[in-house]
Amino acid sequence: MSEQHQNNSILVKRLLLTVAGMFAFGFALVPLYDVFCEVTGFNGRTSNEAATYEMVEIDESRTIRVQFLTRNAKGIPWKFESSVKEVRIHPGETKVVNFLAANPTQSDMVAQAIPSVAPAEASLYLNKVECFCFNQQPLTAGANTKMPMQFYVDPDIPDHITTFTLSYTLYDVTAQSSQSFKDEQKETE
């Protein structure tokens, strides 16, 4: 019987370890998913870091239509739109597109734009040299601003992609960022 007990407790320990391991695996899926998305372009995410423009040959034989879409998440009454709805660009060529934002409210606000590319495959070939989405964008009450986005399309982009859409969703992050401002102030004190 004691041998039985010993066997049982060894097995129970192993199974509990498996349970703990799977619980950890659930959380490990978060960074794994990020890496997976980055490598495959899955889900249409774009990099959050500025790409450096390398002098590449401009492929004038091809023209890609890049369409822009802007929308506001729930609870942010800003005006937010791109200056043009669409540009035509040769792979390798850089372009600047301005996005216009206005804060019509009576209070200072901070917003964060989140980009997404459709079809997702194209996100691997979109390189943003400069983008307002890299940082949070503060706007005082009633102010408006012009936010530039400079990008180029990698000449390696597959032939079957002739058009893609870059959409931005604007989120209100005033609450979170004022908290972090306060934290910073505390630290400086």
């Binding site: 199974l15 498996t18 349970v19 703990a20 391991g21 799977m22 619980f23 950890a24 695996f25 659930g26 959380f27 899926l29 978060v30």
Partner: peptide
Amino acid sequence: LIAVMPVLAGAVTM
């Protein structure tokens, strides 16, 4: 069960 219930627990914890 022991493979996936912990994953659900993780997801709802998030």
